[in-house]
């Protein structure tokens, strides 16, 4: 029986890829007086509801979505959580 799964896909820049937006946010946090902030990296979050027969099947489809669209694997990594 298919049921609806709630998934969260997180896409982040790979290590070593320059993130000018993260750098700008880092600077803004420092200017607001937040001490001790190290590196900031900006990413994206997608909340996706989808029908699937099992959590495993849902995860496989979400990973396929990441490979084909949600992430650009030249510069980005992704992770998938299914509940």
């Amino acid at each position: 029986m298919a049921r609806t799964f709630n998934a969260r896909v997180t896409v982040t820049l790979k290590n070593g890829v320059l993130d000018p937006q993260g750098k700008a946010i880092e600077g803004a946090l420092a200017s607001l007086g937040f001490d001790g902030v190290g590196q900031v990296r900006q990413g994206k979050v997608f909340d996706i509801d989808l029908e699937a027969t099992s959590s495993k099947a849902a995860r496989a489809r979400l990973e396929d979505m990441c490979e084909k669209l949600l992430a650009n694997t030249v510069i980005e990594d992704y992770s998938v959580e299914v509940s």
């Binding site: 890829v17 320059l18 000018p20 937006q21 700008a24 650009n72 030249v74 510069i75």
Partner: peptide
């Protein structure tokens, strides 16, 4: 063309933002 993998690499946000 880079997004469709017809050309290698990627075009990211300008370094100066």
């Amino acid at each position: 063309l880079t997004e469709s993998a017809l050309l290698p690499g990627a075009l990211m946000r300008n370094a100066g933002l």
